[in-house]
Design a protein around this nucleic acid. Structure first.
Lengths: 221, 221
DNA sequence: ACCTGAACACCGTTCAAGT
DNA sequence: ACCTGAACACCGTTCAAGT
């Protein structure tokens, strides 16, 4: 299995190659479909061969997160609010093609090195911008997973809406939500029911950053 | 298996009983440990018996969420900001004993009826408080999963800190995070490294609600 | 008609046997 | 010493056989 029919050796496995293949697989098929066995198959390798490069599946997931988070670029220059805002939007762009990262990060008990590095850098941006240690602490918690550009929605509303009859029934049962779904903002996004995720993300982001700037300027400890 | 040794019939299975047992099991052992087979065993029943009350595991999870979310009390009375704030804190208290709800809700593609009802009610509170349809829409997205009282942290920092040597090494690698971990706010919570989750949640909540009130008062469409 | 044991197609991971 | 096939202890769910 290690030697293809033509006799040439396959490119040997490495931790890097395993992680890259896992990321590509998760991008294409989602993390639910990702199993050690499927991944091994994808790499043309016996399942047990993976265990020489990752201790177990949890370490595989950590490695995948670390790989992707490590690709987020460094911060730019300017006032703290501009720099923080742009860095977060940059992280969001980096993670855009890897929608599984949010769920995996939030399901892991401890942060990976790349994630710690990113968070440390973000905390440094607040401090450099004149935030006290305590306010920086509050700011980091208040931003939470939004620091990585996660939307923090309660559910994935990108799914196709059900047929009109069911929709009408839902509108009757949940009038206020129906009212929101019918608003102009929604139609701008895509089909009925779809929202402009990016606009909503930036709205919430600015709400938080503006609030934090007010506290900073007010000299809150 | 349906008849115990003493010949008395077991209390018959019902959807309600299945869901309550599943919630209790998840509370005690977590959703990772929850399987159809383990749950059946817990109920003294053959695995297939569950499938008469729930179509599959996804429907079981939806039912569990619905059961718990349905226990959130109705809103109180007063100004919009007070009512919204108290309702969210009430939801947070209700979900406090069911830490698995956050992950399950966010992993399901569609909201359950009880969740839709709760969200509809929350949207109604904004509208009644003088929010335009569009601002209500933005507000709902900006709050996101915080509407249910979820902390939205990037990882679970309640885990025990590692030994002092590793900690010192981490502090050197991530100086800004070390600075935050050493702040007085942290020590107030619990042991070193632990935070006062509730205080941080309320800080972020008020940051958002104050920002929204400013927009509402400013007459933003 | 109802119930359920066995079976199917999977998992992550261990371990001993083979080279 | 290295590699790996078989095995172990699980999954969710189907299905046919038994009552």
């Amino acid at each position: 299995m290690n030697k293809p029919a033509d006799g040439t050796r396959r490119t040997p496995l490495s931790r890097e190659r395993v992680l890259r293949a896992a990321v590509a697989f998760a991008d294409a098929e989602g993390t639910d479909a990702l199993s050690m066995r499927r991944l091994a198959q994808e790499l043309g390798v016996v399942p047990m061969a993976l265990y020489k490069h990752v201790a177990n599946k949890d370490e595989l997931l950590d490695g995948m997160v670390d790989l992707v988070v490590g690709e987020i670029g460094p911060p730019g220059e300017g006032g703290w609010q501009h720099v923080v805002r742009e860095r977060i939007l940059s992280a969001r762009r980096t993670l855009r093609g890897h929608p599984w990262v949010a769920r995996v990060v939030e399901s892991r008990p401890a942060p990976t090195p790349a994630l710690l590095g990113y968070l440390d850098s973000m905390a440094g941006l607040f401090r450099a911008g004149g935030f006290s240690v305590d306010l920086t602490h509050h700011a980091m918690h208040a931003m939470g997973s939004r620091l990585l550009g996660f939307s923090q929605e309660l559910f994935d509303d990108t799914a196709a809406p059900p047929d009109p009859e069911v929709l009408a029934q839902l509108a009757r049962a949940y009038p206020h939500i129906a009212e929101l779904a019918g608003s102009a903002e929604h139609d701008a996004g895509s089909a009925v029911g779809g929202c402009d995720d990016q606009a909503e993300f930036e709205f919430a982001l600015d709400l938080l950053l503006d609030g934090l700037e007010r506290l900073r300027a007010g000299g809150r400890r």
